[in-house]
Nucleic acid binder design. Structure first.
Lengths: 197, 197
DNA sequence: ATTGAAATCGGCCTAGC
DNA sequence: GCTAGGCCGATTTCAAT
């Protein structure tokens, strides 16, 4: 498994700035051919590093309601479940889960307010407290630093996959492993599972 | 000034999903010609509703440091200034300013930790307290609802510009006004200012 | 209609086994 | 010496203007 190199980071930087840039323009910047740039972008997409191409909207010019940051203190162990339930909601733009089991939700309220937003999605008995911060300003400016590296977990043991790791495509899906023995163990389990089914 | 219509919102939705979509494909979806779609996207960009085309990166696969949400309680009246200072930092991805003068900053820490990040940018004497939340999960899913409308402030009086408002281009810049008299007042001041200079 | 970009393909080069 | 991965260049198809 190759890590991100300087060129990958530069391509990401250029696409963060303008994702509609033609491959040929990017190619000129990083001194490669257009197909090579495309290959790298495809690879970054398959890896999941690039989740998609999207818009930077100025939400301050759009009025679909009031912007809020909701702070939910959750029973330990249930933060991820609550966060997942919130992910499905249209009005929720960001979710942050903290190490101490608090969920921050950045959302736009409709006329129904906070209760309309949360009631359907959040299991009340797991929530210890709710704090709603009204927002007067929001901004977003994504970036990537020169130190940014890949951080992929081995699907077998959970350790971080280094450049010595291995990648295997099984039934059309790519899986990443930290070492050959994790790959072997995974394949064995996979074969057993497939045979059962 | 025209407001957002159903087609504008559909175009935004399609671009949020994939900003590299060709105009022709969008055109087929909304039943217009490709140039017409282009005109609308240009208009949305000029209005500032679309700030740019960018990437949705999976930060959980990228390791440039530790993700944190920093909560800064600021002296009333200085929140915006502090937020602006933070905007320039590379490691800061989001900033939220609340109505009660708290600034939330979503950032990725380098080896220098929080102090390295904040020391250079934040005037310490304006900060009442700092709270750092370590993040274990982050997610982003932008969307636009059917109720979303434009919300542009009149540059003369600050009121919201409705569909009855007026737009004028002065020295190459577009300005929006809630009514004709605000436009006239603005132009008069502008001429006086230009004459002085 | 013209210009330019995206997609696709065969072949080359390099690193590693 | 063989394989895999990364890149190039040419060509064809499709989009932008």
């Amino acid at each position: 498994m190759r890590d991100l190199d300087k060129i990958d980071r530069e391509i990401i930087r250029l696409l963060l700035e303008n994702s509609r840039r033609p491959y040929s323009e990017i190619a000129a910047h990083v001194d490669l051919s257009a197909p090579a740039v495309r290959d790298r972008i495809d690879r970054l997409s398959e890896l999941g590093v690039i989740r998609g191409f999207t818009l930077d909207l100025n939400t301050e010019l759009l009025r679909g309601g009031v912007g809020v940051l909701i702070e939910l203190a959750i029973e330990p162990g249930h933060a991820t479940a609550v966060a997942d339930a919130l992910a499905a909601l249209d009005r929720v733009e960001h979710r942050f889960v903290t190490a101490d089991s608090t969920v921050f939700v950045h959302a736009t309220l409709g006329s129904g307010g906070v209760s309309e937003l949360l009631d359907s999605a959040v299991p009340v008995d797991r929530v210890r407290s709710i704090d709603v911060h009204l927002l007067s300003e929001e901004s977003w400016s994504p970036s990537i630093t020169d130190e940014t590296q890949l951080s992929i977990d081995c699907v077998e043991c959970g350790n971080t996959v280094t450049s010595e790791g291995e990648t295997a495509t099984i039934d059309g899906t790519e899986y990443h492993f930290c070492c050959g023995s994790c790959l072997a163990r995974f394949e064995e389990r996979y074969d057993r599972f497939s045979a059962d089914a």
